[in-house]
Design a binder for these strands. Structure first.
Lengths: 254, 254
DNA sequence: CGTACCTTTGACTCGTGTCAACAATGGTGG
DNA sequence: CCACCATTGTTGACACGAGTCAAAGGTACG
């Protein structure tokens, strides 16, 4: 809970849980807005962003088939995106950590194709898309930033496709742990010691594995002294070893 | 080869193999540009599009790590997009048929993360991205169209993720055949009788299966009289039966 | 403090991969 | 035009990784 529920201490206006903090002051803006906007342009963007009350664990940010209105930036907490299959099952297609943006699947069809659910208490910035579109017409670097964000989502999805298609259970889980580790590092948190915000079931669903397999892999990794696992608390003991497991691609296959 | 190598007969200016045909006259523009642009705006778009000589089977449209310059519309033929994994293996992440657009993975990092390879002789429209960006700033509906195109790529990738994660070999192949069938129908071709542009190996790679499994599934489908298969020529004999196979999700999982 | 949910572990099964042999196809050069 | 060879596709026998089923802790929450 360290990051998520920490109370905001002194520099109140820079705390990322505070709904009043503006983009210019947000400590995540290097991730969320890594672009050279003038101060006055950031203000314009700031004005269209809505900051509601935090979502509680299990609450929906939006549901599949809802009218598409906005994209969302995670300010704190974690959101999972899930596809609903024909027969009503869930497929987790992504986890979104602070500074990351979701909801872009809704643009094409004017309704969301995913549902988005909070995995823990999460503060969210809502960005109404029509106003973002207007603003993008006037700010070339914002338009570009948005194209880049969507492109990034595409490459992330394609990475996952490759992972699912080519890699074993061990490799998939190692890759997920390394991805979370790297994203934590980006946010200046520990790369080796962190709390998984999602359940074993979410991990299994995301990686195309059953919870039993996920559990067994964690046990195996502990036996090999790659990790120390205490419930959701993860400690990477042997980063290089873990990278070895993740990169070990199967020998052949088409 | 019917669609691909047919010689262009009478209305030469409307034939989609002709490199001189403009967007306004292209028979694919309902797929590629399903937007309400004024005639003069289509002309502006037309002016930035480059139409080179056709690619031959096996030729690269672009390679992973090439400098990102353009996105590409398929005018005729078929392109596959492949990710190269750490150890040099290929992962097919998509097949692009006439009217479809590829290359958007390159925007985020300014170089392509995929390679794109022609599966047969293919004519391509190249759209320089920087000029498309400029034009998008002046044409709101073009900006929106592009956001939608990228969003469509995202939802397609997430569909594939779900397929790989949750579905059996039979279900995956049924889904691919139905997808190609529907896209053919969109282009006013037969939904039940068509030629697969890709090899068994490409199919297996795309769907996370070995070529042996792909071959066996085709045999099984023929035995069940869902399909008639003659090499790459496919005849869907029982469309409803095939849809049944595709939608039959596994009972539980997660 | 009890109940519901999540996680772990074991025993067994099954689908798909692997390995191997062979058939069919298509392109090339004599 | 045909023979040759490389490539691609088909089929069978077997193996193995991950799924399924089941049971027993652990943990969280009311």
């Amino acid at each position: 809970m360290s990051d998520t529920n920490a109370t905001c201490a002194k520099p109140v206006q820079r705390c990322h849980h505070n709904p009043l903090v503006s983009c210019g002051d947000c400590r995540l803006n290097a991730i969320c807005l890594p672009i050279s906007l003038h101060v006055e342009d950031i203000d314009k963007l700031d004005q269209i962003i809505q900051r509601g009350r935090p979502l509680q664990k299990g609450e929906y940010l939006y549901r599949s088939n809802d009218q598409f209105t906005s994209v969302f930036a995670v300010r704190s907490g974690t959101i999972k995106a899930v596809n609903i299959t024909n027969d009503g099952e869930e497929q987790v297609t992504g986890f979104y950590l602070p500074g990351e943006i979701l909801g872009m699947d809704g643009i094409a069809q004017n309704h969301y194709t995913n549902s988005a659910i909070a995995l823990e208490t999460s503060a969210i910035c809502e960005i109404p898309f029509s106003r973002l579109e207007e603003l993008s017409l006037r700010l070339p670097s914002l338009q570009r930033h948005f194209f880049q964000l969507m492109s990034k989502e595409i490459t992330a999805d394609q990475q996952l496709i490759t992972l699912l298609s080519k890699n074993s259970a061990d490799e998939r889980i190692a890759a997920l742990l390394l991805s979370i580790s790297a994203r934590n590092q980006n946010r200046h948190l520990s790369a080796t010691s962190f709390r998984l915000p999602m359940s074993r079931s979410d991990i299994g669903n995301y990686l195309g594995l059953t919870i039993e397999t996920v559990s067994r892999v964690f046990s195996r990794f502990q036996k090999k002294e790659l990790l120390a696992v205490d419930k959701k608390e993860i400690n990477i003991l042997d980063m290089d070893g873990l990278k070895n497991v993740a990169q070990a691609q199967p020998a052949s296959r088409s």
